[in-house]
C-alpha cells in the first residue's frame, strides 16, 4: 500500500503535516508525537528578525473552535537556523518553513537566508489576519499576491508554497495568481477573521480585538475552498482547516488536496497528527485501495 505523495518533486512519506503555528518548532510536541511518523513538520512563521507578537489575551475559545491573535511572535531567522532547524533535521520527516514579513524585502531576506539550508520547502504566509502591516495585504489582492510570489520564486532555492487567506471574495482568483506567478503549490486555508465579545465585561476578549478562527467550525469552508481551487489550478494543494480525524483529512484529499495539515486540533488532542495518519492507512486498507493517489481529487 502506498501512502507517499509528492509535491514539486519533494516526496512525503504520508500526506499528514502539522499546520504552521500550532506545533511550535516540533520540539514542544516531542513527548506525544514521534516526528518520524509525520509527512512533514511545518514550522511557526519565521521573520527576518524576532517579532514580539501581540498583547494578551491572545486566545479565545468559541463554539467549535478558537480565535487566536498571536501576532506571529517568533525568534527570528537566525535563532531558527541555529536552534530549531538542527533539531528538526534529526528526524526522518520533511521540514517546511513558514515565512512571514511586513514588507517584500523582509520576506525576501528570510527566503535568501534559507537558501543554503537543508529545509525542504518554503511556505509563504501572506494570510495572517493578526498583524497590521504587510502580511495579509499581499494575500488579499491578486496583483499583490502575483508580485510577491514571483519575487519569492526568483529568490528561493526550495519549492515555494503560497499560503492563501480565506478572507477574500474569490479564492480561485488568488490560487490562479499564485500559479501564474510560478508557485509550486498552494496551501489553504489560513484562519478566518473573527471576533468575540465578553458580554459581562462589555469588552473584546482578545487584546487585538479580532483574531483568526480555526478548528472544526471552519472545516466545511475549508473543504469547499480546497475543492474550488483544485478545479481552478493544476499545482498541488495542501489542505487544512479544522482537521481532527482521518475522516476529516480524507474529505480534503477527496476534494483535491495532495496533503493535509492538522492545526488547532493538536491542542485538543496532542496525538491528533498520528491518529490521522494511522486512520488514513486504515481507511485505505479497509477499502482495498493500493495507492493513496487514487483518492486525491476523486470527488469531482
Amino acid at each position: 500500500m502506498n501512502t507517499k505523495v509528492s509535491i514539486a518533486g519533494v516526496e512525503f512519506k504520508n500526506p499528514v503535516m502539522t499546520a504552521s503555528g500550532t506545533f511550535g518548532s516540533g520540539m514542544e510536541y516531542g513527548e506525544f508525537v514521534d516526528l518520524n511518523r509525520l509527512g512533514a513538520v511545518v514550522t511557526k512563521g519565521v521573520a527576518n528578525v524576532p517579532w514580539p507578537g501581540n498583547p494578551t489575551p491572545r486566545i479565545a475559545e468559541v463554539y467549535g473552535g478558537m480565535l487566536n491573535a498571536i501576532g506571529l511572535q517568533n525568534p527570528g531567522i537566525d535563532v531558527f537556523i541555529e536552534r530549531d532547524l538542527p533539531f528538526l533535521k534529526q528526524y526522518d520527516t520533511r521540514v517546511i518553513v513558514n515565512v512571514c514579513g511586513k514588507t517584500m524585502e523582509e520576506y525576501l531576506e528570510v527566503v535568501e537566508r534559507l537558501a543554503d539550508t537543508d529545509v525542504d520547502m518554503l511556505e509563504i504566509n501572506v494570510s495572517c489576519p493578526n498583524v497590521k502591516e504587510g502580511a495579509i495585504a499581499f494575500g488579499q489582492k491578486a496583483e499583490a499576491l502575483f508580485a510577491i510570489t514571483s519575487r519569492v520564486k526568483r529568490a528561493a532555492r526550495q519549492p515555494v508554497i503560497m499560503k492563501l487567506s480565506p478572507n477574500v471574495t474569490d479564492i480561485t482568483e488568488m490560487a490562479r495568481a499564485a500559479e501564474a506567478a510560478g508557485a509550486d503549490a498552494i496551501s489553504l486555508i489560513n484562519t478566518l477573521t473573527g471576533m468575540k465579545i465578553d458580554v459581562e465585561r462589555r469588552q473584546f476578549v482578545l487584546a487585538n480585538r479580532t483574531g483568526g478562527l480555526s478548528g472544526p467550525a471552519i472545516r466545511p469552508v475549508a473543504v469547499r475552498m480546497v475543492w474550488q481551487c483544485a478545479n481552478a489550478v493544476a499545482i498541488p494543494i495542501i489542505g487544512m482547516g479544522g482537521i481532527a480525524t482521518a475522516e476529516d483529512a480524507l474529505e480534503f484529499l477527496m476534494a483535491g488536496a495532495t496533503a493535509v495539515a492538522v492545526g488547532a486540533m493538536n491542542f485538543v488532542n496532542p496525538y491528533a497528527t498520528i491518529e490521522v495518519a494511522e486512520g488514513i492507512e486504515a481507511y485505505l486498507r479497509r477499502h482495498g485501495i493500493e495507492d493513496i493517489r487514487e483518492i486525491i481529487g476523486c470527488v469531482k
Binding site: T56, R58, A264
Partner: peptide, 16 residues
C-alpha cells in the same frame, strides 16, 4: 495566569 490553548509551549498564546 493567562488564557491557554496548547499548554505545552507551542502556540505562544499564554505569554507574559
Amino acid at each position: 495566569e493567562e488564557r491557554m490553548a496548547c499548554g505545552v509551549g507551542a502556540c505562544l498564546g499564554c505569554v507574559c
